[in-house]
């Protein structure tokens, strides 16, 4: 049986109390929400916090505020996010992304905040301690080399969150609270392109809320590439959101790739390229090529790395065709194995 290491456990009742505890523990402490990312990592001894500060009893983290835009508590489970009518109706890309995270059980446990803070992944790193010992460890934990590309100066572990690309495409912000105060941050700025320092959340900060703007006239979507219809992390995520003029030309657009870098990858060029154009097949194909040029999948997860790059235009195409209004249900069934 894979077992957790020993740890101290604290269970604050409020964000303020949690923030105080986190500040007091310093780097020895880690927050636990759903636990679906942290606990496997702890069982494999990738992360060994001395203290876990539980967010399970913290008040207010499951709040949903429906005003101008939508504010989602970071403690909502992914199942709860999927079950939120406003998400399904107005922020379809987020709905589709959340519905494709991991498996039903893991969505019942894992939280929105947890998925945004998900540790970067790499199959040189997401291994048991003995396995990592057998390769002499890696840069992300206890070693010096990044085995994905041994000349690399930085860790190439991959950002594997589904909801972050979808939320960045929806121009979401996040609220971070610490003992010293709080701040709101564009979600895109939460990430660094570095497998180790992948997140700009300070160690003493708690991600409490996701703030979505009012998005009248926008449509959004998320497509996920993975081997199976369940369990698997993305090998490619394509999130797209666009606002269109009545004539079908694009007024604003945001395309974001997931799982092809150590951070979610907003595609400024491809997004700008779409503005002012109608989403005809040629435009979509060109946007796909632009997107693929930015994607840098690494050989540290499933399936062939060159193939994963090669199919980026197709997946961008699925997303943009869905935005355009094509009936993509049959393709969605073939790719995702479920109706979304």
């Amino acid at each position: 049986m894979m077992r957790l290491p020993w740890f101290q456990y604290q269970r604050p009742a409020s964000v303020a109390e949690a923030a105080r505890m986190l500040a007091a523990e310093g780097p020895r402490g880690m927050l636990i929400a759903g636990g679906t990312d942290l606990l496997p990592n702890m069982k494999r001894r990738q992360q060994t916090p001395a203290t876990l500060i539980s967010l399970s009893r913290v008040e207010g983290l499951k709040k949903i505020t429906n005003g101008s835009g939508l504010t989602l508590g970071a403690g909502l489970t992914l199942t709860e996010v999927v079950g939120t009518g406003a998400v399904r109706e107005k922020y379809r890309g987020l709905w589709q992304a959340a519905a494709q995270v991991a498996s039903p059980h893991l969505r019942n446990m894992g939280t929105l905040g947890g998925n945004l803070c998900l540790d970067t992944r790499c199959n040189y790193y997401n291994q048991n301690e003995e396995w990592r010992e057998a390769i002499g460890y890696c840069m992300k934990k206890e070693g010096k080399t990044c085995w994905v590309a041994t000349a690399s100066k930085r860790c190439l572990a991959v950002s594997s969150t589904d909801t972050a690309p979808a939320l960045i495409a929806l121009d979401a912000k996040v609220r971070l609270v610490s003992a010293a105060g709080e701040r709101e941050l564009a979600l895109a700025s939460l990430y660094n392109n570095d497998g180790i320092n992948y997140i700009t959340r300070k160690p003493d900060e708690i991600l409490t809320e996701v703030v979505l703007p009012q998005l009248d006239g926008w449509s959004s979507t998320y497509w996920k590439l993975r081997r199976r219809g369940s369990f698997d992390f993305p090998l490619l995520g394509v999130a797209a959101a666009a606002r269109m003029a009545p004539d079908g030309s694009v007024l604003e657009a945001r395309v974001v790739l997931g799982a092809v870098s150590s951070q979610p990858l907003p595609l400024a060029k491809a997004s700008e390229f779409l503005v002012g154009k109608k989403l005809n097949d040629e435009v979509i194909a060109e946007a796909g090529v632009l997107a693929a040029s930015r994607a840098k999948p690494m050989d540290n997860t499933d399936l062939d790395v060159y193939w994963r790059k090669e199919v980026v235009p197709s997946f961008v195409g699925y997303a943009l065709r869905e935005i355009r209004g094509d009936d993509m249900r049959a393709m969605r069934m073939r790719i995702s194995r479920q109706a979304l």
Partner: peptide, 12 residues
């Protein structure tokens, strides 16, 4: 609710 007991701290 169906959960995975292997990833649920008993403490919680």
């Amino acid at each position: 609710e169906p959960l995975l007991s292997c990833l649920k701290l008993a403490l919680e």
